[in-house]
Simulated scan of single mutants.
Amino acid sequence: MAGRIRYDFMYRVGAPWETSAPRPELAELLAGGEISRPGRALDLGCGDGTQTVFLARQGFETTGVDFSPVALAKAREAAGRAGVEVDLVRADFTADRVDGVRGPYDLIVDYGSLDDAPPARRKVTAAHVAEWTRPGGLVLMWCFYNDIPWWRWERMRYPGRLRPGEERELYEEAFTIRRLAAPAAGSGSACFVLRRRA
């Protein structure tokens, strides 16, 4: 509840990660043909809906899920402005049961959602992602990773990040995993492409 209130506030005043442009990794994988279309796509932690709307404009049947009603209202407005239909679901994807999200999906995008989940709930979230991804389907996951160079609090690690190897612990059983060249190692963030095994 406290987390949702915090996110509601940030979306009201303008969250620092909000952008009107699609994320470059997603756009490049689409342009290069690694992500095939059309298909069904899920935007995990969709926020203001920028990636949700972008995928819908690329021909995907797209669902965005977020627990912030403020974020979902912004996503709904963005979809209306773009003239696309998207399914927006208010839910906590770290919960044991997530009503309204129905796989399988050909593509799942996760920009900073898994790393923001409480560490004790990440296995549950990863299990949902594996369940929702069709065999051969793709997950694009961007996360804060390892030490964050701009985080300077002594004796306190940045809380919302994956530790090295955690992506394998969470996903290797169901996915092949490849780290993209950018963001570079040592930058404090990483982007992974996960392909669902048959």
Rank of each mutant, 00 (worst) to 15 (best):
D48C: 01
P164K: 11
G49V: 03
L180M: 10
T94L: 09
V13I: 15
Y111W: 12
R102I: 12
F175R: 10
H128T: 02
R163F: 15
V98Y: 00
L42F: 02
G112I: 01
V129H: 02
R134S: 08
P16R: 03
P149A: 01
E28W: 07
Y158V: 13
M1K: 11
Y11V: 00
R81F: 08
G3D: 14
D48A: 10
D147V: 13
G59E: 07
F67I: 04
A182I: 15
R12T: 10
A27H: 04
V109D: 00
G165Y: 04
S189G: 06
L140G: 06
Y111T: 04
T62N: 07
V53I: 13
Y158S: 11
W153E: 13
L29C: 02
R168W: 15
R90Q: 13
E61M: 09
T176A: 13
L162H: 11
K74T: 02
V98M: 02
Y111R: 09
A79E: 02
Q58S: 09
R90C: 14
W150I: 10
R90I: 08
G100K: 08
T19N: 09
T52Q: 03
P24I: 01
L88M: 06
T52N: 07
M10H: 13
D8G: 03
G137N: 01
R178I: 05
V84C: 06
F93V: 15
I108C: 05
W132C: 06
K123N: 15
D43S: 00
A79S: 07
A82W: 00
V193A: 03
V98D: 08
A126W: 03
G188A: 11
R179A: 15
